[in-house]
């Protein structure tokens, strides 16, 4: 496998896992209205869950790393467990928003949770091997030759994205998307209509968290390692930027935003010539551009490049007269931009 080919593989896996995470966060923020600034924590929860459920006991490999649990479960089971843990952590984060406190206060709480999780995991070496993190996390295709195994991994991530997209559409489109958006716009009015805001919100957090958990598991299995350095709170901002730039609440917009921000932008800066002697400049530039983009879009075009679409309903009297071909989709005509 050539260097370029491997680079493409890496990019595709990053794109796939970023897409899953961005869709999950978009469900929480774009559709349901909770800017989960601790979203990276559910991704990390998924990654760690996968790792400790597939690494085997921590006495293996010479016992150089310490962690809890230490099972050796099949890949699929470990990923599903990662989704479940992601959902659980998502719900726990979501509970902090249930108290009737201001949105910005909620945001601060979640930011603090994000910072706190990194500190706690980093401080305790017996839990998840502390600051050094976990390595040698098994890849399900390690028995294949690297060329075949890497592309098999890409294919698997692609499959996860296809399934993920259809699952996500059940929540973001149609009646459930409508109910969640109503909650986003006015949660008191939604409660006055007989909806349980708690249930709707926790459902959104659970589904969003499960997506993050799967994203983290697939990422950790591919990279083979996971440590506190991989999930600093700023990572959540990269996903938020993708959502805000692409268009909150618009699945295609968010997907495009993820491609442009998480892949193109963060990779493009790597190709800049080293204009300064010190390392870390290109990474710093990436974050600066990201922050400036977020602020610019919230200022100039808060709805993003692709604004949220709503279905167009024809009146009952109009359907008889309407153009043929509509019958398949009922009265819902093509969404109007």
């Amino acid at each position: 496998m050539t260097g370029i080919e491997f680079y493409v593989v890496v990019l595709l896996v990053y794109l796939g896992t970023d897409l899953l995470a961005a869709w999950g966060l978009n469900l929480e923020y774009g559709i349901s209205g909770v800017a989960n600034l601790a979203y990276i924590v559910v991704i990390a929860a998924g990654a760690y869950t996968y790792a400790i459920l597939s690494l085997g006991p921590d006495s293996g490999n010479g016992g150089f790393q310490l962690y809890v649990v230490g099972w050796q479960l099949p890949f699929a089971v470990a990923v599903i467990a990662a989704a479940a843990v992601g959902a659980l952590v998502g719900v726990i984060i979501g509970v902090t928003g249930l108290k009737r406190i201001r949105q910005d206060y909620q945001g601060m709480v979640m930011l603090v949770i994000s910072l706190m999780a990194v500190t706690v995991v980093g401080a305790d070496t017996g839990f998840l091997n502390g600051q050094a993190g976990l390595s040698l996390i098994p890849n399900p295709f390690s028995s294949l030759s690297p060329a075949v195994g890497d592309w098999a991994y890409v294919a698997m991530v692609a499959l996860a994205c296809v399934i993920g997209f259809f699952v996500m559409r059940r929540f973001t489109g149609g009646p459930m998307g409508r109910a969640l958006r109503a909650m986003r716009d006015d949660e008191h009015a939604v409660a006055a209509m007989g909806f349980s805001v708690i249930r709707l919100r926790l459902m959104s957090q659970a589904v969003g968290g499960a997506f993050g958990g799967v994203s983290g598991a697939l990422l950790a299995a591919f990279i083979g390692g996971w440590s506190p350095g991989a999930w600093a709170y700023v990572e959540t901002l990269a996903l938020l930027t993708a959502i805000i730039v692409g268009g909150m609440g618009n699945d295609m917009g968010v997907s495009l935003g993820t491609f442009v921000i998480a892949v193109l932008l963060l990779q493009a800066v790597q190709f800049l010539p080293q204009i300064s002697s010190h390392t870390g400049l290109t990474e710093a530039l990436g974050w600066i551009i990201l922050g400036v983009l977020t602020i610019t879009f919230l200022w100039v075009r808060p709805q993003g490049i692709f604004k949220e679409r709503r279905p167009f309903y024809r009146s009952p009297g109009e359907t008889e007269r309407s153009a043929p071909g509509d019958s398949a989709t009922g009265r819902v005509a093509a969404p109007r931009a």
Partner: peptide, 9 residues
């Protein structure tokens, strides 16, 4: 109180 992001119907 209406849901601003949704259409009237």
């Amino acid at each position: 109180r209406v849901f601003d992001g949704l259409t009237a119907i």
